[in-house]
């Protein structure tokens, strides 16, 4: 669905529909573009600064299109206990971007997610829907390198 269609479906929505609307847009576009934020602001008569404030409060929203490879890193409890923060650190350093961002060449993006229900395989990452179990810093470096090489 296009942004316009989503907004039409929310023709009479009040300000409290902000989050559902943002979710629907992200669902359909993959991220919240600047244009989208401005459009939603006009639609609900909410200042864009407030929308951006609300949206950045939640980890689920991103403001850049996802990369060709979208890496989701689980930060749920089980994964955390088994070192997911190091995993995140390694990936961020390797790709030189922070979670929520996309590399300049558009190849990779990182997203932090809550428990994805594969705790037995912790720590888990998921690239374009494909799970990688019990990842270690070395393993990750390898995975990322392989993907990079495939595209150079």
């Amino acid at each position: 669905m296009q942004i316009e269609e989503i907004l039409i479906a929310h023709k009479d929505s009040e300000k409290d529909s902000l989050i559902p609307i943002l979710q629907e847009i992200q669902e359909s576009e993959g991220f919240l573009s600047k244009e989208a934020v401005i459009r939603v602001g006009k639609h609900l008569d909410i200042p864009t600064s407030r929308i951006f404030g609300v949206a950045t409060f939640y980890n689920q929203f991103r403001f850049e299109p996802t990369g060709k490879y979208h890496i989701q890193i689980c930060r749920g409890t089980a994964c955390h206990v088994l070192g997911s923060s190091t995993v995140l650190d390694v990936i961020e350093k390797q790709l030189k971007i922070k979670a929520g961002k996309t590399t300049r060449d558009g190849l990779f993006s990182i997203e932090v997610v809550a428990c994805i229900g594969a705790c037995g395989l912790a720590p888990v990452i998921c690239i374009n829907g494909e799970f990688h179990a019990k990842v270690t810093p070395e393993k990750i470096k390898q995975i990322v390198e392989t993907l990079k090489n495939q595209n150079s």
Binding site: P47, T48, S49, R50, F52, G53, T56, F57, Y58
Partner: peptide
């Protein structure tokens, strides 16, 4: 004017 707000968390 609403130029600014609290961002992030």
């Amino acid at each position: 004017v609403n130029a600014i707000d609290i961002l992030y968390r």
